Simulated assay, not measured.
Amino acid sequence: MSLDIGNTSFTEFDSYLDNMTKSCPFLKPALDYNSVINKRFQLNDKNYKKIEENIFWISLQATEEFRNVRRALTGQKKTLFNVNLIFIYDEGIKGNVLDWPHYILKLLYSKVGVVYGKFHNGALKTNRHGLLMPSPPFTHLAIRSAIKSKDARFFNKTPDLVDDILTSKDEREDVLAPFGVSISDINPFSNKIRNELYQELYNWAKESL
């Protein structure tokens, strides 16, 4: 089970984003254009795999909402539009819960020009200059449009997706169609069907490695 707390702004995360502008050249203009939306979700499950699966479905739905909003934007607003999905869950859940949802989403959405950043609570990473980035106060997934001239370098671990990014174009295609379902059918799906479809997507992603 999950609870959508909705659009949110709170001091700790806002301060983190401000500090991240030093490491992410995309972020400062996005903030200056008021093009950043933060959404917070409370995940009440106690099971690691359920948390992972819920993160995937929340992120897939948010990506579809992102695509819909993006179509109505123009110019810099369209390029800079950015959504952060912040996930709050039991502190006893250990591990990188974003890893598989993030990878599956990359496989599904790179061809329509959507890219993702994954940030686990407390993780320490370096930026492109080798400098330490601010440690995220919350686990979150960032969604934005691909910047073709810059983003290919982020796909060094998944080089097969570089061509998808460089040739990406959003023509409203249904990314789940190859799996015999439609995005529009997801919300009414029973938990059992969601579980089975997530497992199918997980196996598909695993085979691509």
Rank of each mutant, 00 (worst) to 15 (best):
N84R: 09
V83L: 03
L17M: 11
S23M: 06
F155E: 10
F189I: 03
I143M: 02
G92W: 09
K50A: 15
M1H: 12
V115P: 15
K125D: 02
N96D: 13
L17A: 11
A30P: 09
N191V: 06
Q42A: 12
D32T: 00
N127S: 14
R153I: 15
K94G: 10
G92F: 05
R194T: 08
F66Y: 11
G180M: 03
L131R: 13
R70V: 04
D185A: 15
F155M: 11
E173Y: 06
S15G: 00
K157I: 04
N7R: 11
H140R: 05
N96G: 10
K106Y: 00
E207I: 04
N127E: 05
S149N: 10
D164Q: 14
D174L: 05
K39I: 10
E12T: 08
L3T: 05
P101S: 03
V36M: 01
T63P: 01
L201A: 01
K106I: 01
K22H: 11
N191A: 11
L80T: 11
L80D: 03
S208W: 02
V175Y: 05
Q42E: 14
G180F: 10
S145I: 00
K111C: 15
T126R: 15
G180Q: 08
I93T: 09
K118E: 06
K125T: 08
H129M: 12
N34R: 15
V36R: 01
D4S: 10
N38F: 06
P188N: 14
T74C: 03
L31K: 07
D163T: 11
H120N: 07
H102V: 01
L132I: 14
N38L: 09
T11W: 14
K78P: 13
D170R: 00
T167M: 13
A152P: 03
M1W: 09
K169Y: 12
G92D: 08
F155I: 08
L105H: 04
F56Y: 10
K49S: 12
D170E: 03
L3S: 04
P29V: 05
L132S: 13
V83F: 10
D4M: 01
I93M: 11
I58K: 00
W57I: 05
N44Q: 09
Y103I: 11
Q199W: 15
D45I: 07
N7V: 14
T126A: 07
G180K: 13
I165H: 09
R67M: 01
P134H: 06
A152T: 07
F26W: 05
R128Y: 03
G75F: 00
L60G: 00
G113S: 05
P101A: 00
V114E: 06
V175C: 07
G117E: 07
